[in-house]
Design a protein around this nucleic acid. Structure first.
Lengths: 168, 168
DNA sequence: TAGCACTGCTTCGAACTCGAAGCAACGGTA
DNA sequence: TACCGTTGCTTCGAGTTCGAAGCAGTGCTA
């Protein structure tokens, strides 16, 4: 570490607060749109979208979970729900019997197609409408660098969790 | 509406994806630090921090909930937990018997003080370390504008919720 | 001052999330 | 081939979140 100031500059604080605020508000607004149009939670949408972007509309559970920064057990739960709704199917991988491959169905693609335009429209009106083209360029560049940094720093931070005192 | 393109430019997509990724990763990392050092969830930290920043270390429940973009019932729950831990106290407002005023205790300030340096250090190493000063300026400016826009757009969007089919 | 819509908080039930533990399959080694 | 640490997923229990409903206090109007 070169230096570790005890505080942040007001600009840094401002950037951080603005970031968290945009994050919260945008998330809520987008969530609402997804719920209203496709009866999807944000997580479910992310999962479907990621599948839609994958080679044969399919991915291994673990890869999918890592992709959306989500717990494996949580993914199992959501995959069940999506499976019940017929938006995805699950099958053991031919390569590795342990793996479950989750695949987007036609119905899944339909829901995705139904939700997408509104999703994009929401992003336009909520986020990009307030920004100039060059702002968006800058944002993409800066956040891209930040994302790369975050991805690289903690490859998979360990350290045991600790909720409350488990016991004396 | 002036125009509603059916898709986003790749720069816009990039900005959006980078944003969500930074948001997720940063959130997880910060959450972990807060948990390890002060045994606080992110929400709890936000609540304490906001109280610490308020006039007499106190705020009305509703204002606090709005401040952190959080449901009222959720706040009631967390306020109970923080109360039990002695980090805050709750009392009816003298002005308005309906209101509950939640106040930071000394113990609450102590926890906040214990957690803060690590929190700032985490922000440094996770986020700001990857960015130049001018990047941070830009980020603050752009996200500030976006936040203002988001705050203004939906004063409090209504529209009834709808989860799954309530019936066959 | 009686009536009444509204506000502020809490309670309640249902849904979602997570980590730990459990179970099966894999892959290396002897 | 038998063993064994590792990997991939699911099950389980506990904790957290939300919206709807309920309840009390407020303030406006007649």
């Amino acid at each position: 570490m070169t230096e570790t100031p005890a505080s942040l500059t007001s600009t840094q604080l401002g950037a951080y607060f603005a970031f968290t605020e945009v994050s919260s508000l945008l998330r809520h607004a987008v969530e609402k749109q997804l719920r209203d149009v496709g009866d999807l939670s944000y997580v479910q949408f992310q999962l479907l979208a990621r599948l839609g972007d994958s080679p044969h509309g399919q991915q291994r559970m673990t890869d999918l979970a890592d992709g959306v920064v989500y717990s494996r057990s949580g993914l199992t739960y959501q995959a069940q729900l999506l499976d019940q709704r017929g938006l995805v199917t699950r099958a053991p991988s031919p390569d590795d019997e342990r793996s479950t491959v989750i695949s987007l169905t036609e119905a899944g693609r339909d829901v995705l197609a139904a939700v997408f335009p509104g999703h994009i429209e929401a992003l336009h009106s909520l986020l990009f409408a307030a920004l100039s083209d060059s702002d968006i360029d800058e944002l993409a560049r800066i956040l891209g660098a930040a994302a790369a940094h975050l991805r690289a720093i903690p490859p998979r931070s360990a350290a045991p969790r600790r909720r409350s005192r488990p016991e004396a």
